[in-house]
Amino acid sequence: MVQVTFDGPVLEKPKTLRICFRKTGALRYISHLDLMRTMTRVIARVHLPIKYTCGFHPIPHLVFSAPLPVGAESPREFLDIAVLRELDPADVVALLNDGLPEGLAVEKAYFAETKLQAIAAAEYTISIHTPSASPEVAAFCGSLLQEKPIVVLKHTKSGDKDVDISPAILGVESGFDEREGDIVLRIRLRADSGSFLNPDYLLRYLSSQTGILQGSPLEEWYAVVRTHLYNENGQDFC
């Protein structure tokens, strides 16, 4: 049990503390809302001196990087909180890790200069296991995702609509993993709040175009990992 009390001097102005954590293993099946609840509670448990919302039912003010699709893993996600006292980020890391499961472990925390809104793009590695997989099929899948337009049925606030998602696809590389026999796609998608694209749409599109991933989960499966978040200059966001 890590014991720390946050009794440093009160800051004149709250500072943004950025927490980098992963979402892996069984925790990849919890939704973004579930993640928010989990973080809210661990922060309350360790008594982090942070800003709460006002009103009848105050809740801690948390800002997360773009939601991960349910089932997708990520080695590095971001959470910004506004801390009210001087503190050592290393203490925060130790305390949070004490109260978080392996799958949500915190890698580091630091006072941030940037804003999460500066995240412009995300890179995903999608591995698809399917009996028909071959280097040719992999290349074909890659080329399909580079066509324009790519029309999918998108769930929006005003109902389901056919939308061309190709403008949000910034880059596609395809490959074949000989050992696993998997199609591997490296895909870069827009991730700024206005035009964030969920990679699941690409999988659904591929499935409808090629017939893959329609069979038994014992024979066909896929995995999605969000490997990078980039700023608008294409550099790793931090």
Binding site: G25, A26, L27, Y29, I30, S31, D34, T38, V42, V70, G71, G99, L100, P101, G103, H129, P217, L218, E220, W221, Y222, A223
Partner: peptide
Amino acid sequence: INEKQMSGILRSVEKPGRYTGGEF
């Protein structure tokens, strides 16, 4: 069933978090 196969099953049901356990 291996973990990869299980992922397909979990993704195809409502609220997979009902089954994954690992709670604090």
